[in-house]
Design a protein around this nucleic acid. Structure first.
Length: 295
DNA sequence: GCCCTATGTTAAA
DNA sequence: TTAACCTAGGGCT
């Protein structure tokens, strides 16, 4: 469920709390035991995200590569260094924030007993991280990391991303732009919410063939997804409404009914034109849009 | 308890 | 296009 912004926040969290630290790596659930053994006792290096893939470097040359899929989530705990994010990943409650406001216990005395579903656990001197429910959890060599990244489209959150690759891919296909935006080989990090919201904000019908988009529309989608993803990184939630569309409500305080224009708002009136927000299932995912604004 | 849902991806048919 | 995979919360009975 997390879209790209969550993974970039995770990379930052790993850099903040684990970089330079020697870690014990285990797999309480058992399904990552072999990989955990390869990383156990190594020192954590640089971590980064490419789209929805997280890469955590270790000083033995290996990387931990995690993709959360729909259900995956990381939970953190530890001493004062670990204050900040308590949980990043699949939201389990409406209005949940990635940034934990919870105050950690004053004295850190070690990690709690792991739940049986914990695929991977990292423990340093200062704290711990538990991973549950990932689609991907594996170790990769440097070359393998490059191979994985080569198959991914540019990530608007990465400074070295080349939007030209996105524009070219969009120009070449007659698949609906609403489907193409979800294709991680075309653009990385955009998920179901950013797709729906960016298409609404740019007033583009999701079913239009991608190749029918003008250069201006292509550019608009790239820039708006970058803009929205950056807000997501900053506040730890997906907020896509402009301030004037949620009067008096700060982006960090916006509840779901004020946070998005069309996502999960089917049957409600469009805040811009009053048309009824529509939903349909396309390529196995729910697609939300405003039939009045998006043409 | 049981059913539904979810910010995702891959493989098989 | 469908199924499979992975997990937990909420609403219901």
């Amino acid at each position: 469920m997390p879209e790209g912004h969550s993974i970039h926040r995770l990379a930052r969290q790993f850099n903040d709390v684990f970089a330079g630290q020697t870690v014990e790596v285990t797999s309480p659930q058992g399904r990552f035991s072999a990989g955990a053994q390869l990383l156990d006792g190594a020192r954590v290096g640089d971590s980064f995200a490419h789209g929805k893939h997280l890469f955590v470097g270790f000083d033995n040359g290996l990387y931990l590569n995690v993709h959360l899929g729909i259900y995956g989530a990381w939970t953190f705990g530890g001493d004062e260094q670990f204050q900040g994010a308590s949980s990043i990943g699949a939201p389990r409650r409406v209005g949940e924030r990635e940034l934990g406001a919870d105050v950690q216990p004053a004295a850190y005395t070690g990690p709690p007993a792991p739940k049986a579903t914990v695929r991977a656990r990292l423990v340093s001197e200062h704290g711990w991280a538990d991973l549950v429910g990932p689609t991907v959890c594996r170790t990769l060599t440097v070359d393998e990391v490059a191979q994985v990244r080569a198959k991914l489209g540019p990530d608007p959150l990465n400074d070295d991303a080349d939007p030209t690759a996105f524009f070219t891919a969009v120009s070449k296909t007659s698949r609906p732009i609403g489907v193409v935006l979800m294709d991680q080989k075309v653009i990385s990090g955009v998920g179901n919410i950013f797709r729906a919201e960016s298409l609404f904000r740019q007033k583009i019908d999701p079913l239009r063939p991608a190749k029918s988009l003008s250069a201006e529309e292509q550019r608009g989608l790239w820039e708006d997804n970058k803009h929205l993803l950056k807000i997501g990184v900053r506040v730890g939630r997906i907020i896509t409404t402009e301030p004037q569309d949620r009067p008096g409500i700060a982006e960090t305080e916006a509840w779901p009914e004020h946070a998005n224009y069309v996502y999960h708002r089917q049957g409600q009136p469009c805040p811009r034109c009053g048309s009824t927000i529509a939903v349909d299932e396309i390529a196995g995912r729910k697609l939300y849009w405003c039939p009045g604004c998006q043409v």
